[in-house]
Design a protein around this nucleic acid. Sequence first.
DNA 1: TCAATAGTGGGGCAGTTGACCCAGTGCACA
DNA 2: TGTGCACTGGGTCAACTGCCCCACTATTGA
Lengths: 206, 206
Amino acid sequence: MTRIPAADRRSALVRAALRVVADRGVAQATTRAIVAEAGMSLASFHYAFQSRDELMVELIRHVVDEEATAVLPEAPIEDADGRGERESLRQILRAGLQRYADHVSGDPLREKAMLELTQYALRSPELHHLAVAQYERYHSLAAEALDTAARQSGSVWLHPVGEVARLLVSLTDGLTIAWLVDRDDSATAKLLDVTADSVAALGRPA
Amino acid sequence: MTRIPAADRRSALVRAALRVVADRGVAQATTRAIVAEAGMSLASFHYAFQSRDELMVELIRHVVDEEATAVLPEAPIEDADGRGERESLRQILRAGLQRYADHVSGDPLREKAMLELTQYALRSPELHHLAVAQYERYHSLAAEALDTAARQSGSVWLHPVGEVARLLVSLTDGLTIAWLVDRDDSATAKLLDVTADSVAALGRPA
DNA sequence: TCAATAGTGGGGCAGTTGACCCAGTGCACA
DNA sequence: TGTGCACTGGGTCAACTGCCCCACTATTGA
């Protein structure tokens, strides 16, 4: 009988739930499945959480937080003094897209889980705002990355960066789904090339 | 006791199931809910279908077929003799994107259902190939539309049209999700502008 | 006209689900 | 050291799920 503070159990259960959702899907993420994954008893679950729904809220919050930090830190490091080689906007975009694609293919199940959780949130009035917050964060992250890319390449965007950001997020979402469906790596690689071209066309040298 | 041939019941059940999935989600599409929606008894369900899974297969097949015919017929009619006004590639793309966006906002629940069903298929080994077929069809539909757009505007694509098609499908998928999440019509309108610009940049006058 | 058959309906079954209860147990703090 | 309480485990519950059974009935076609 290992005694664990309720707060610790909460986070352990959230992590276990994420594994279950990734491996088997939201529908199979029953309290029992989660509890088994975490190696706990059912009672511990309901001691830590009032209900399964409460866990789901926490789970979505958790993945949103993680996703935000997962892609961002790998963003290109900006030259402090600007004396380094200047990459073209297209090159920077292409590299960023590659990082994202690697992130996805590095853990496909996680990405599948993210999409499922978004859909799940979209079905529940109480959770909908979490999905909205998730996408607001995506958009601002993308805007930030695009700002950096423009600065690094000495370019300016021909549209408000927020609009380009929405384009970028839509693109990454879409290519994620397409890849999850057909796992066509070579098609995706070419898609990244095309994407970099088309997005880069939205900027011009300053 | 209205007697209905099993084949008719099958399609009635499939249509009822689609309504239930759209309104309440895949998880709530229980045999009882579907049967209630169709106004039948539970026994009729299992007379028409061996199992719920069999219905889901049929349902996915059905929506894939429908989706294909839903967007295509609205595609721009090509000038038979080519003497008409030539629209720019960008204009044609923008108009096509608008049609798609209208299609989505015209029936948001349907689109949500499509996405959920794709995810559902992605979770089942037996259904996965249906999702693959679905996206193959999307891609070829997009390629066809892009070909037409290029011809109509007297342009050529700088990349193989299949690659641009994958970009277009990714884009539409992504913007659908974003809109389903935040329902931001003005952001979407601007996104369509930006998208048309960036995709049009992948073509040049022939 | 009358059997064979396609289709119907209600009741029921076993398995799974989320949630709960409560007697017990180890830990922290006095 | 002891006492209060956070925490545990196992058993239980009602609701819901997909599926099945079987007596019954309308329809068909010989």
